[in-house]
Design a protein around this nucleic acid. Structure first.
Length: 374
DNA sequence: AAGGCGGGGTG
DNA sequence: CACCCAGCCTT
């Protein structure tokens, strides 16, 4: 029968893919066991984050918090410190929240039901599918960016990575094709293929196990799939960073618990109620005029690019004679003058605070400077 | 449906 | 530079 024949050839790629995975699967730390906690942890870290970046973080996190219950007992600052530099810090916060829920409501065992997994903070459709298939052997697809790209090319369908409907369409297709016997391997195989062969740019079709069944390849149109929606230019924020130190103490701020870099620490920012640089200059001049200022030195400029905006940072280091911010309060960002969000810390303490990458170069400068005894 | 949310690899 | 990565959450 023609339809039957077409059906079989249309799915030939699944067998080829699994055979390829048996030969070429990457050896990754989280593939050494099926411990649901480890699978879960790896999938959270891997959200929007490349494998090579995650590996050292995964090992370190697991050493610090070997089990769900160990994590559930941890405090947020310790979790943030392990997570420092990995980005998307709400993942760490949600992971800790979820660990407490699993510890208290599920006897420390990650649930194996999709709705219960989706109810945990930080677990969405992709991560639930990955955990269900890899840790629990259930035939549920795990549709990430790689999977959309690979399926878009195999079927020559104009799916868009960012389109939720398109991800659901891919999910639907894969629900019909995922093998009951090896669902986790199937999901990981597609992702491995996407990460090592079916690359976003310049896919290596000559070494692809699916080259003879991939419609985009046969049409010589791999560049047309998936479709990419146009992106807007990133807004640039001009910021002036003020590092204030008094003897061995440095002043830091903890950011609010929502929004950009929530819960992490930075140094002070110059108040910027307008983008007029002349105003910045006058603020700096007034601050420098304070009698408690011992010296001011310029620090290197820095441009830090986020996903949705750019910080263009100019920085100055104020050394003052006493740990007292009051002469500066009119000129510093107002979120700093109240409560425990504002703190004077020693260099040793500074080393243990979670700081975003944008602050790391400045932290190094502060830590490297010899503590000058006046 | 759209935008916020880090940081890094790659051409 | 642009693109995008084993996405999720909020509005």
């Amino acid at each position: 029968m023609k339809t039957v024949h077409n059906q079989q050839t249309a799915d030939d790629w699944i067998v080829c893919l699994i055979e390829w995975f048996d030969l070429r699967a990457r050896a990754l730390p989280w593939r050494r066991s099926k411990d649901p906690y480890r699978i879960w942890l790896s999938e959270i870290m891997l959200q929007q984050t490349q494998v090579q970046t995650v590996i050292p973080y995964f090992e370190r996190f697991l050493s610090a918090f070997p089990t769900v219950s160990a994590l559930a007992e941890a405090n947020e600052q310790d979790v943030f410190k392990i997570w420092e530099g990995l980005g998307y810090y709400s993942r760490a916060r949600n992971l800790l929240k979820a660990a407490k829920i699993v510890h208290h409501d599920h006897q420390g065992k990650l649930p194996d039901q999709k709705n219960q997994l989706l109810a945990l903070p930080g677990i969405g459709p992709y991560t639930a599918g990955a955990i269900l298939s890899i840790a629990f052997g259930k035939p549920v697809p795990a549709v990430d960016g790689n999977v959309v790209r690979v399926l878009s090319r195999i079927t020559a369908t104009a799916w868009d990575l960012k389109n939720l409907k398109d991800r659901q369409a891919v999910q639907k297709v894969l629900e019909q094709k995922i093998p009951d016997n090896r669902p986790g391997d199937f999901n990981e195989a597609i992702m491995d293929l996407g990460a090592t062969v079916c690359l976003p740019q310049n896919p290596q079709c000559h070494q692809c196990p699916l080259q003879s069944s991939c419609r985009a390849n046969l049409l010589n149109q791999t560049a047309d799939f998936p479709v990419k929606s146009s992106s807007r230019p990133l807004p640039v924020e001009d910021r002036v960073l003020i590092i204030i130190s008094s003897g061995p103490l440095v002043h830091v701020l903890q950011r609010p618990d929502t929004g950009l870099l929530a819960g992490l620490y930075t140094f002070d920012w110059l108040k910027q109620d307008s983008s007029v640089s002349a105003l910045n200059q006058s603020r700096l001049i007034e601050m420098r005029a304070s009698p408690i200022v011992i010296g001011v030195q310029p620090l290197p400029d820095l441009v830090h690019r986020f996903t949705h905006l750019i910080w263009s940072i100019k920085a100055h280091w104020f050394q003052i004679s006493e740990p007292n911010l009051s002469p500066f309060l009119d000129h510093l960002d107002s979120s700093c003058d109240v409560s425990q969000q504002s703190a004077w810390v020693s260099k040793k303490e500074l080393k243990h605070l979670p700081l975003p990458k944008a602050m790391h170069a400045y932290r190094e400068i502060v830590l490297d400077s010899s503590t000058e005894s006046s």
